[in-house]
Structures are given as structure tokens and as C-alpha cells.
Design a protein around this nucleic acid. Structure first.
Length: 463
RNA sequence: CGGGGCGUAGCGCAGCCUGGUAGCGCAUCUGGUUUGGGACCAGAGGGUCGCAAGUUCGAAUCUUGCCGCCCCGACCA
């Protein structure tokens, strides 16, 4: 054993937060305030489970602290969103949460935006606001630097907290007042180029939601005064969804664009394929068109909006003077679109779509840990040493482990693991060890495998 | 913003109608017995009863005002 790996080993044994290998945590050192009973304010299942699993704590109506388990998942969702934005060619920046009213006066929205905008005054009595969105600000950044069509296309995005003072926040993080959102803004020389930018986001969204373990369906949305067909809501199907949705079964079977999809090429065939089958929320529902589908193709379900993409042309660039020179030397307002994903809302949406009586069932891509290692009898020398060995081996092998090393009863341990929904549970107890066996349980199916210690490690390393 | 409801220990609740110095379950702590799907026994700690004013000898309880939170609706990522 070389010095470096000996160091790694020692670190894993002595440090509760070993830096090498995968994220790992001993329950005895973690902060996981599980609730056995459901707080009465939580009406829908995702809210109940997030509170019970110690992921969030409400601080005020529609405003939440993200406790460690929730924070881990939030970061994982955020990272997948980020990776797919980057893949599509969007560029990340970070704009502030507090904005000045001045900018919003330029677009005319300071007065148009209703009470949903949280208005603040600073010590100099300047009018400020907590941003509900960032069109004005990103347009200001753009106009300060870009003068020519040669700098286009450009898509700038950030992942930042927003605040909308909803009249009635509800459903936990699904409809909070403070929420984490990815918002991207595209800049193009004309409508045709803007459509290409739109298509890139469309494809990026298909990939993003698929990676999050969700079946998201793009549905035509109202474009308001802009008109046209360039606005879609991405809806995930969940029995507890907030609104009724209707679609053709065909759309559920469409292939997700692969990770090597060429974002510089023509994406319109993909977008066309995904926008051809019938799919609509109840607001845009065309009962006649839906009834025209063969009966066995009709899907009538409930859905949650997790993303929205929108082309709005020169709505902000016009009044704010965000112009670029075209090839002909003539300055013209830039064509823009905006593209949102509700990152914090997604956590609720994922749970709505993936849970059972006992608790959450995380898709592997966003699970806070891959496996929960359960020591059924702490203090038993053999069990302790096998668990310690497993914890270290799995961590060094890149498998994220939450190790329940606390002295407690088996039933409570199982119930906690089921509640927090890690994809795998690795159960180690003296009875099994007498036969050299441990038990590996898959959370999603309840399927249990009785394996040797080595076989269990291999199985988990295989993913 | 219209309608309804609730604030009593960390969580879930009783007590309020009929005023008399606060209680139950879970959780927590101590000791013991237990130990493979949310154990048992014994003991202990923990509450300005949302806030304020009023009525009263006395208010969790009655009155008024305020604050907070939830649900339904309208609205929205």
C-alpha cells in the first residue's frame, strides 16, 4: 500500500467527513431532525415528507430553511440543471437578488408588476426590490457590452433565489414565496435565430428532466400579446399535480435526445417530434382535438409545471435600448427569450412523482446518498467492524454512504431509511453475519438480496 | 383579496362552553430489562397557554384589538 492510499484509509477511518472518495456521513455526526408525526400544516405529500425527513423547516409563510438533507438534494438538482444548460451552450453568471427600481421603470414593469413584487427601501430611501425575475437586469448587462450581431447568439443564465410575494403560498416548496430558479435569457439578431435558441433550450429541458428521473411533457402555453407558437410549459405527471393535463400516449414514448446531441446543428426535427402529439394543460385544452384521438391513446392526468420557455422578441430590448448592429450596419433591438426551471419546486415535484406509504423514493441521480448502511446492533464487535469496513470501502469506491451507526432499534432504523428514500439499504446485523451475509434492499421495489459482504460491495459499485 | 379554521412543551392534541394557579401521547434525559420492521418498566426535565389591553378577588378559559399560520376560491414558476 502506497503512502497516499494509507492516508486515504486513515482519513476515512478517523474523519467523519472524509474528503477523498464519495460524500459520506455517519448518522451520529449528521443533523437529520426526523419527525415521527406529521406537522398539521402540511397538506400535500411532498410537503409532509420533506418536513418529516428533516429536509426543510418553514421560517415564515412560503419561506423555508433547507436543512442538510434537503440542501444536498437541492444542490444535486441544481447541478444537473447547470450541466445541461452548459451542454446546450448557455453561459452561467450570477445576478443579485436585490435590484433597483430604476431598471424596472425603464421597462415599465415597476408599476405594472403587482403586489407580488416585494418592494424595499434602503437607508437612503432608494427604491429597491427583491427580484422576482431578471429580464431587465440581464438586458442591462447585455446592452452595456454587446453592439454587434457578431457577438450573437448569446444565452446567459443564472441559478438564483427569487421572491414573489404570492397571495397564498402553499404546497411547501412547490409554491413558496422565496424559491430557487434557473433562468436563462437568449439574445439573437432575429426571430429565426431566436427560434434556434428556443430549440436549444427545448432540447436541454428534455434532457434535464429526464436526468432528474422525471417524465416531463412539453405543452403549448399561452404566449400572450407576443403570439406565435414559441412558448411551452414542461409538465410532469403526478397524481397529486396541481392542474389537469391531457396528452396523447404517443408523447410518453418519444426518445430523449442523447448526451451527444449536437446543439450547434438543426434541432428542429426533435422539437417537431415532441410538439406534434397532442399535449395541453386545461387552460389550453382543446376537447375536440383530444376526443379525436383513439380512445386508448388518450391520457388524462394531473401535472406540475417545472419549466417554462418563452420567446418574447423585443419586449424589453426595445424600451431599454438593447440594440445590436446587423450585417447591414443597421442597429435593431435584439430578440430575446427567457427560460425558467423551478429548481426548488422540482424537489417537491420529484417527491410527488416518486414516493410510497413509507416515504420518499429518490431517483438515483438526485438521491442525497446512494446507500444507507444500517448497523443493526451497535456495540457488537463483529457487526461494528464489518460496518466500518463497508463504510470505508464504499466511500473509497465512490459510493455515497449514509451510515446509521447510532444505537437504536431495528424497526426505527428501517423506518427512517424508508422515509428518507435512499435508493439502497445495506443492512448488517449479527444474525446475517453468522452466515457471512448482509442484506441489500432496493428502496424502489422493496426487493431484498442476501449477499456476502464482497458481493454487496460489488453490487453497489455496479450502480 | 373573498370565505372558513387554528395558535396550549420539539411534534400531535385535550382543557375553554360552565374562570380557581396546566394535562395526555410521542420525542428528550437517567437507570434497568430488551433488541432483525417505529419495545417495556421506573423516574426526571421542559410551557411568559401567540401578543396587548380590558372585565374580575382570580383569566389558557370571558371581551376587544393586533400578530402569526393553515385550508377552499381567485391568481401564479
Amino acid at each position: 500500500m502506497c503512502f497516499a492510499s494509507a492516508l486515504v484509509l486513515m482519513t476515512a477511518l478517523t474523519n467523519p467527513f472524509p474528503s477523498p472518495g464519495a460524500p459520506a456521513m455517519r448518522l451520529s455526526r449528521f443533523f437529520l431532525p426526523i419527525l415521527r408525526e406529521t406537522p398539521k400544516e402540511a397538506e400535500i405529500v411532498s410537503h409532509r415528507l420533506m418536513l418529516r425527513a428533516g429536509m426543510i423547516r418553514q421560517q415564515s409563510a412560503g419561506i423555508y430553511s433547507w436543512l442538510p438533507l434537503g440542501k444536498i438534494v437541492l444542490s444535486k438538482i441544481e447541478q444537473i440543471v447547470r450541466e445541461e444548460q452548459n451542454r446546450s451552450g448557455a453561459i452561467e453568471l450570477l445576478m443579485p437578488t436585490i435590484q433597483s427600481a430604476e431598471l424596472w421603470r425603464e421597462s415599465g414593469r415597476y408599476d405594472a408588476y403587482g403586489k407580488e413584487m416585494l418592494r424595499i427601501e434602503d437607508r437612503h430611501e432608494r427604491e429597491m426590490l427583491y427580484g422576482p425575475t431578471n429580464e431587465e437586469m440581464v438586458t442591462d448587462i447585455f446592452r452595456s457590452a454587446v453592439r454587434s450581431y457578431r457577438d450573437l447568439p448569446l444565452n446567459l443564465y443564472h441559478i438564483q433565489w427569487k421572491f414573489r410575494d404570492e397571495v397564498r403560498p402553499r404546497f411547501g416548496v412547490m409554491r413558496g414565496r422565496e424559491f430557487l430558479m434557473k433562468d436563462a435569457y437568449s439574445f439573437d439578431i432575429d426571430r429565426e435565430r431566436a427560434r434556434e435558441a428556443y430549440n436549444r433550450m427545448f432540447v436541454a429541458y428534455l434532457r434535464t428532466f429526464d436526468r432528474l428521473g422525471l417524465k416531463a411533457i412539453p405543452m403549448r402555453a399561452d404566449t400572450g400579446p407576443i403570439g406565435g407558437d414559441l412558448s411551452h410549459e414542461f409538465i410532469i405527471l403526478a397524481s397529486t399535480g396541481e392542474s389537469a393535463v391531457f396528452c396523447s400516449k404517443d408523447i410518453l414514448d418519444l426518445p430523449i435526445p442523447p448526451d451527444d446531441v449536437d446543439f450547434r446543428g438543426d434541432l428542429s426535427p426533435i422539437v417537431t417530434a415532441w410538439t406534434t402529439p397532442y399535449a395541453a394543460t386545461d387552460e389550453m385544452h382543446d376537447a375536440a382535438a383530444f376526443e379525436a384521438l383513439p380512445e386508448d391513446k388518450r391520457v388524462s392526468a394531473r401535472g406540475i409545471e417545472v419549466g417554462h420557455i418563452f420567446y418574447f422578441g423585443t419586449k424589453y430590448s426595445g424600451p431599454m435600448g438593447a440594440n445590436v448592429a446587423g450585417p447591414d450596419g443597421v442597429e435593431q433591438p435584439v430578440h430575446m427569450g427567457s427560460y425558467g426551471i423551478g429548481v426548488s419546486r422540482l424537489m417537491g415535484a420529484i417527491i410527488e412523482a416518486s414516493h410510497d406509504e413509507a416515504g420518499i423514493i429518490w431517483p438515483e441521480s438526485v438521491a442525497p446518498f446512494a446507500v444507507g448502511l444500517i448497523n443493526l446492533k451497535t456495540g457488537d464487535q463483529k457487526t461494528d467492524s464489518v460496518c466500518d469496513g463497508l463504510y470505508e470501502r464504499l466511500t473509497n469506491a465512490g459510493v455515497a454512504v449514509l451510515f446509521d451507526d447510532v444505537d437504536g432499534r431495528a424497526g426505527a432504523k428501517f423506518a427512517t431509511m424508508d422515509l428518507i428514500g435512499l435508493p439502497w439499504q445495506l443492512v448488517v446485523g449479527p444474525k446475517g453475519l453468522e452466515r457471512g451475509e448482509v442484506e441489500l434492499k432496493r428502496r424502489a421495489t422493496g426487493e431484498r438480496l442476501t449477499l456476502s459482504v464482497d458481493a454487496a460491495v460489488n453490487r453497489l459499485m455496479a450502480g
